[in-house]
Computed example of a mutant assay.
Amino acid sequence: MEKLSLEEDGVAIELVASDAELRQAVQQLEQCDELAVDLEFDQNRYTYGFNLCLIQVADGKGKCFIIDPFYINNLDSFFQLMGNPAVTKIIHHSNNDILLLDKMGCSVKGIVDTDVAAKILNYERSSLATVLKEEFGKEIDKSQQSSNWNKRPLTEDQLRYAAIDVIYLHQIKAKLLQEIKQLGRMHWLEEENLLLEQLKYTESENPHLRLKHSYRLNYYQQYLLKSLYAFREDLAQQFNKPAHFVIPNEALVELANNPNTDLHEWLNHTRGIHGNLKKPKNERLLENALQGAKEAAKTNNISHDYPEHRFQRPLRTPETERRKELLTMVQKEIMARYGEYASKLIINQSLITDYSQSGKLRCTKKYATSIVMEVAKDLGIALHVSAAPQQLGE
């Protein structure tokens, strides 16, 4: 592959597209105390599944490595670097990056999330583009944001865009953390970062029941939907297309709701069905999957009764309304003291609803619990805490 020679705002961009180049890059990066990291991935947008497409790492010293995993057989050396807590990883809005790396067997340590830092500083919008404009007056081009990162070769515009996502993060971290320290909120950021490190990728136990209107189906129909969902996943993986490109979600639920429909007619008159599924071979596979699900449902005596509504409205009594009102008063005072957007890290509607129902404050963040209890005390409101938040790392 031809050696890349690009530069962006004084930072040299180096494409890493072989195992040998990755080893050399990691050797250089291991000498740094802080690295800025970002991933480009495809999550059922153009291809099947949640897949890594690109890794960007800036050393803060004038070099940015663009690591192309499509040409690399073994990312273990990079994963070990990401797992080294002695090297700080500056990531902007890290949740999905952490989850994808965890899915691939990499546990990231030493995280500083600049998106969280911006929220702590009460940013209404905390995107990288917004933070750069607010803090440095710099406008960045986001036209490549919706690029198909699966396609090769990557364009020069894509590579520059990918580099821009990391080359300013060292400056952003320094500026935001200075402001956070002045506000005395560093312990907020430290706890939030430790919570991010504990994120784990998990597959949903019953993903078919997350489809819109699936809760309206009876037990028998939901049983069929589970089999149809699994069939669609297998086919999507074969086609390497997002599952909803093979059969749209609402069409899948519709088929489970009307399982005795003429499949050939259904396939050819339903919008959004992938062309490959209409081939005789795949049509027969769908027919077999549906018939097999019907027979299994009969064998297992699956009921045609309807389940109780899974989304029960919270119980409303004078006591739950009183609790809700008290904690809402606390929320308003927190917003006044810390700012509307920073307050969302401390208290939200879900916490208020849970307290109104249970009568106990169940907050997983130590700093947030401390603030809520302190504000409540100042307002003369007695709150009950379920238990002291567990120490992070225990």
Rank of each mutant, 00 (worst) to 15 (best):
F239G: 05
C64S: 02
R216F: 06
F311M: 09
Q43M: 09
E34P: 00
D115L: 03
G62Q: 05
R322Y: 03
E139N: 08
S204H: 09
L327I: 01
F50S: 00
A118S: 11
E205F: 04
Q391K: 06
Y123F: 11
S94T: 04
I172E: 15
V112G: 01
G83V: 04
G105L: 03
G110P: 00
L285W: 07
G275S: 12
L290C: 03
H244V: 04
I120G: 01
R284A: 12
T114P: 07
I371E: 06
F50G: 01
Q238M: 15
G62N: 09
N122Q: 14
D97Q: 05
Q391G: 12
T317E: 14
A17W: 00
T299G: 09
D354R: 12
V11P: 00
E333Q: 03
H274M: 12
V372I: 12
T130A: 08
D68G: 11
L392D: 05
N96W: 00
Y48M: 15
L267P: 00
G272Y: 13
P259K: 13
L255F: 03
K173R: 15
R362K: 15
N288Q: 14
P259E: 13
K278E: 06
S386Y: 07
K142L: 09
A382E: 00
C64G: 03
E295H: 12
E319S: 03
E308C: 08
F231V: 05
